[in-house]
Amino acid sequence: MPERQVTEVEGHRLVLSHLDKVLWPDTGWTKGEALYYYARVAPAMLPHLRGRPATFLRFPSGVGEAGFFAKNPPPGLPDWVHTLTVPSHEGPKDRVTVDDLATLMTVANGYALELHVPQWSAATGPGHHDRLVIDLDPGPGTDLTDCCRVALLIRDHLAEDGLTALPKTSGSKGLHLYAALRPAPAEEVVGYAKRLAERLARTHPDLVVSRMAKALRRGRVFVDWSQNATAKTTAAPYTLRATPVPGVSTPLTWREVEHCTDPEEFGFTPDAVLARVESDGDLLADLTTHPAPLPDRRD
């Protein structure tokens, strides 16, 4: 394969480089394979990225070496790539919004193997959120099967409050649960998520912990409500993960969650995810089309 390959994507000229470079040394998976995956999964992935200021985890030397988070638009970014000005501790900053296939391919060509986005978009502004997310992180002595048990509890709690939970793997050790919201003040979304986590910790103390101290997590699943903070980002649906074997943050069915008995069941490869999308479509499609009001629950 040539060192550089020129292609046209949505009317934009892209120069893709080093396509034979191995980025996952344990499997021999290359940059070209990563770009091919993103091109194929883009129709399902882009609705979950569009209009959201992205943070990238870049691995120019491959996942065997240290990667780094990148928030600022990289040098030489084409002028047709959309950006969004967001608040930060250092003042307003520009962030890339991955709104189309050409942008997705551009950032992936720059070794942005993982894409992370917040729970708000350009349409809502940072002060209001249109997603609730609960990050289930297994502590020592627990695994994904325990996360599934907690996910079912959260699903039922959210249903009582009129919210529909949608699950996906983190692509690493845990699970993410989303619920689509009508735009609600950020501090109210954070407060609701925190109270939910604390309620579960009270009613299921042997299974759930809501406090961040790592010493408390042994034998329990940490229900991380803090991912709803405006400044936080979560691995986007369908993003690759920089695990030794290429992982994907993969949407799930509730039947899969209910019947999970082995963490390996959720170790989806990129090829498996593409087959799932082709067969079932985007299992998180309702996240962009069926928002509900944030419950006014204070317990």
Score class of each variant (00 low, 15 high):
Pro2Thr: 07
Thr7Ile: 15
Arg13Ala: 11
Leu16Ala: 10
Ser17Arg: 14
His18Gln: 14
Leu23Ile: 12
Leu23Asp: 02
Trp24Tyr: 14
Trp29His: 12
Trp29Val: 14
Glu33Val: 07
Met45Arg: 05
Leu46Trp: 06
Ala54Met: 10
Arg58Val: 15
Gly62Phe: 06
Val63Thr: 13
Gly64Asp: 11
Glu65Asp: 13
Ala66Asn: 11
Asn72Cys: 02
Pro74Arg: 08
Pro75Gln: 04
Pro78Gln: 09
Thr85Trp: 07
Thr97Gln: 04
Val98Ala: 01
Thr103Cys: 03
Met105Phe: 00
Thr106Trp: 15
Val107Pro: 00
Leu115Val: 15
His116Asn: 08
Ser121Tyr: 01
Ala122Arg: 15
Gly125Pro: 06
Gly125Lys: 04
Val133Leu: 09
Leu136Pro: 00
Leu136Ser: 06
Pro140His: 09
Thr142Arg: 15
Thr142Gln: 06
Cys148Gly: 08
Gly162Trp: 04
Leu166Phe: 05
Pro167Arg: 00
Pro167Asp: 10
Pro167Ser: 04
Lys168Gln: 13
Ser170Trp: 00
Gly171Trp: 00
Gly174Ser: 08
His176Trp: 06
Pro183Glu: 12
Ala184Arg: 03
Pro185His: 08
Ala186Phe: 01
Glu187Val: 08
Val189Gln: 01
Val190Asn: 01
Gly191Ile: 01
Gly191Val: 03
Tyr192Arg: 02
Tyr192Pro: 02
Lys194His: 13
Lys194Arg: 15
Arg195Ile: 07
Glu198Ala: 08
Glu198Arg: 10
Met212Lys: 11
Ala213His: 11
Arg218Gly: 11
Val221Gly: 03
Phe222Glu: 04
Ser226Met: 12
Asn228Met: 05
Ala229Met: 12
Ala229Phe: 08
Thr234Leu: 05
Ala236Tyr: 03
Thr239Asp: 05
Thr243Cys: 09
Pro251Ala: 11
Trp254Gln: 08
Trp254Gly: 08
Glu258Lys: 13
Glu265Asp: 14
Phe268Gly: 02
Ala272Pro: 07
Val273Tyr: 00
Arg276Cys: 01
Val277Pro: 02
Ala285Thr: 10
Thr288Ile: 14
Thr289Trp: 00
His290Cys: 09
His290Met: 09
Pro291Gly: 10
Asp296Ala: 15
